[in-house]
Design a binder for these strands. Structure first.
Lengths: 303, 303
DNA sequence: TGCGTGTATAACCTTCTGGCATGGATGTGG
DNA sequence: CCACATCCATGCCAGAAGGTTATACACGCA
């Protein structure tokens, strides 16, 4: 009786959403594909998991039983996966470092150099993560340690140390009325369309839309992108504006886009993060120390 | 990162056998198929799990890590599967009963009738198991309770009550020199070719070859079968002889085959078995009581 | 040199999965 | 009362994946 973790993920999504249509959306597959997969899972087990109705899909008792156990199964698999990868990188003397585009920026060079001095036999494998994964691969076990920006979903399950903070600016298309101003109040941007991160990034998306600083007004979404390049294009083409760390003005300068300081939004925090299981990995800890020693002050307190 | 339990099973088989060729045999797939699957698993994880050599496949450190965790993952899945199916059958008021061909024989009718009286609202779903599964579906969660013969592999993980015992006889082709004898000593059969169960049935196969009563002499295998019909044909066609419970003489009588009593082999035990998790399932316990009350004596002690 | 024991590759077939378009059932609002 | 929105199910097609057989390649050994 062989099952794919994919089937379990699909099943859980339907169980949680209570409807094929919404679950399909969340999973980025078409609704007919989900219909077929769920039916196949039921056939495989020989058990009806849902009762169908016009209002959606409701779990049967048996479905409830499976839905209760599936999350632990998936988590156990993820855990085994992480540990396997960690063993591999340790055996090969490779430290896998994930980073978000424009996370630590110029500090990165210094950190790597310092780490190379401290661990001469080790190689550093830098991996840039897509924006859809604000943990930069840490959640999947793709990397041992990551340079990230706070806050992000799942942050509580990881160990985090803040390295420094940086003001958030706004990126505007060149011809925008506000583009000539030296400084902009955030409330002036409330009604602007924003270029946003995909919905599945949750708290991350909200943070860069600054929903907390809008006094309850919903943001307008002009476009959704998940890569730096798409993001820049969307802004340059006038689909919307976007908040970005100050350093983006240097690292993502491009004709057609201007960056301006914004008041009234909290600064962005750059941090180094690792998994609890790497707490006792001396190489990871060495890297963390190199981060702390090669970035400007406010990195005393854990976040 | 989606994985199939099949991939984990394949991986474990190769890890345990230390060679693709032998593992492929055990898994009943071709060696090239296994080669591809293992490579795919490695690509999926981005980790080398084995070092290849002419002498076989040796686990890497990372492979060792995964091999240590995989059995628990598979067991957890099997457990969830069993519980889900059990919930389903309980909700539908169906008791799924597995049985081996010729397990309880004539007693079966009485047991079912008694159970129907005790649990009027319930339906009994009888499922005959293939000989390749001496647990009659209990191990996979296909059934809630099973009528089996002892001993079988995995018996210790289940709850078992012996119902009665039955002498083992021998089934011979009609023209066989011993076919005219009233009674046969087992040592007279030591050099006969036997019709055996498939190798993967382990202790079950050994029991019906009576390897324990051969004083260390290896049995001769004349044919391997996994269905009653094949088994009867193999014997009738003279590929070998086979031990069988006395009742087979009634239930599997057929021209070309004679059954004769054998001395020097222990009797076969017929038992009812259930999983530890069904220990508190009152319906299963009712069925067990019906078994005990509708079979001849020696069912006082748990086996 | 030929054989046995390993793994890898090639060519081919079948099954599975996903996407799109569409159908059927059932409420809901103008 | 009809048009529309919201569900899930079905049919059809393309591409990917798993399986099989035949064969290649590497090596130790008689």
């Amino acid at each position: 009786m062989d099952v794919d973790t994919r089937l379990l993920r699909y099943f859980l999504a339907v169980a949680q959403e209570g409807a094929l249509t919404r679950a399909a959306e969340r999973l980025h597959v078409s609704q007919p594909a989900l219909t077929k997969q769920i039916r196949q899972l039921e056939n495989l087990l020989g058990v009806r998991l849902f009762v169908r109705s016009r209002t959606g899909m409701a779990l049967t008792e048996a479905g409830r039983t499976l839905a209760d156990r599936a999350p632990a199964l998936l988590a156990a698999w993820e855990q085994a996966l992480r540990e396997t990868r960690e063993t591999a990188s340790r055996a090969a003397r490779v430290l896998r470092v994930g980073f978000l585009a424009s996370a630590a920026n110029e500090a990165t060079q210094r950190i790597i150099a310092a780490f190379s001095l401290r661990r001469p036999g080790w190689r550093v494998d830098m991996r840039q993560a897509a924006w859809t994964d604000p943990t930069a691969g840490l959640a999947d076990g793709e990397v041992d340690v990551a340079l990230v920006r706070l806050p992000f979903p799942g942050q509580d399950a990881l160990r985090v140390r803040v390295l420094f903070t940086e003001p958030r600016w706004v990126a505007l298309p060149e011809g925008h009325p506000l583009a000539t101003r030296d400084q902009i109040r955030f409330d002036e941007l409330w009604d602007e369309p924003f270029v946003a991160a995909p919905a599945e990034t949750g708290a991350w998306r909200d943070y860069w839309l600054a929903t907390g600083e809008r006094r309850g007004r919903a943001p307008r979404i002009g476009a959704v992108t998940d890569q730096p390049d798409d993001w820049l294009n969307a802004i340059a083409n006038g689909y919307g504006v976007a908040l970005a760390p100050e350093s983006a003005a240097r690292f993502y300068a491009r004709p057609g886009i201007v960056y301006r300081p914004v008041t009234g939004v909290s600064p962005s925090q750059v941090a180094v993060a690792w998994t609890p299981s790497a707490q006792n990995n001396p190489v990871v800890q060495d890297f963390v120390h190199c981060c702390l020693e090669n970035t400007p002050p406010p990195h005393d307190q854990p976040a």
